[in-house]
Every structure is written in C-alpha cells, then in structure tokens.
C-alpha cells in the first residue's frame, strides 16, 4: 500500500508514505484548530446585534434627539428633524476607519423617506429599524422610524 512496486524508490523516496504522513498531520492540525475555536467561542458572549443597537441609540438618544433649549434635557426617541444631516452625523461617529454607518429616517405618517446618510466607507449588510417620533420646526410630531446599519 505504501510502496508501489512499479514505482521504484529512489534514495528512500516513498510517495505513498509521505501522503499518509501529510494526511495525519493535516488531520491533527484540523482537530487542534477545532478545539481552539470551540474554546474561544465560549468568550464571544456578546450578541452580534449589540453594536448595532448601541450605535443606533447614540443617534436616537443623543445626536439626533430633540433637546429642550432651556433645560438642556434630551428627549430620547424624539428626533429633531433639523439635526438630521450629514454634518451632525459625521460628528456623532468620528472615527470610521473600523466601522461605517448607514442611516435613513422615514416619516410613517407622511409616508415619506428622507435622504440616506452614509458615515464612513461603505454600505451596510444588515439594516435594523428603530421606532422614533420626528419633531419638525413647526412643532408637529409624526411617527417615524430610523433605519440603521453598521459594517
């Protein structure tokens, strides 16, 4: 099995022998990598959507949130429509070398979608929807949603 009688062995070279040895080494490496991967998996305790929620709530609760002029109190979940622009969102997520953001505001009462704003280098694969209220400069408040994705 290891040595083919027809294929003469030159200077001790036995192809079948090396194939079997190589296969055993690969199998050993595979098993060890599998064990390591399973071990490290135990420490990946954070749900994959947590970063998306954290960054989305930064926009919803602070950067885009309506702020009372006198008390300076933020109203989480109430979007000040005048804040929804590229400049504000660029200041909200300063370093985009690792993450980029895809944000779009929709007014569900008017059935209107506003411009999508990209912060960073590219589009996102997974977009999530967050219910919000949109406050306009004339004082009207409409039901809306913020579509948010990160990559």
């Amino acid at each position: 099995m290891i040595r083919n009688k027809k294929a003469k062995v030159h200077h001790g070279f036995a192809p079948g022998y090396f194939l079997m040895a190589g296969f055993i080494f690969l199998a050993m490496a595979f098993v060890l990598l599998l064990i390591t991967s399973q071990y490290m998996k135990a420490f990946r305790v954070h749900h994959k959507d947590i970063p998306t929620h954290i960054y989305a709530y930064r926009a919803v609760n602070t950067c885009l949130a309506y702020q009372d002029n006198i008390t300076k109190r933020y109203y989480p979940g109430v979007i000040d429509f005048s804040k929804y622009n590229q400049e504000n969102l660029d200041a909200c997520y300063v370093d985009t070398s690792i993450r980029s953001f895809n944000i779009q505001l929709r007014d569900l009462d008017k059935k209107e979608s506003y411009n999508r704003i990209l912060v960073g280098f590219g589009a996102s694969m997974s977009i999530k929807s967050y219910p919000v209220w949109i406050m306009y400069s004339d004082g009207t408040i409409n039901k809306g949603e913020l579509l948010f994705g990160i990559s």
């Binding site: 954070h46 947590i50 970063p51 954290i54 960054y55 709530y57 609760n61 602070t62 933020y74 989480p76």
Partner: peptide, 15 residues
C-alpha cells in the same frame, strides 16, 4: 472588548 462596548454605550447615553 467589553470595556470598549461599555464606552460606546455610555457615549450613546444623554446627560
């Protein structure tokens, strides 16, 4: 990783 996510969460909190 947990500390960095904690910081992101705090920066997402008003006041």
């Amino acid at each position: 990783k947990d500390s960095a996510m904690f910081i992101d969460a705090i920066l997402s909190t008003p006041q």
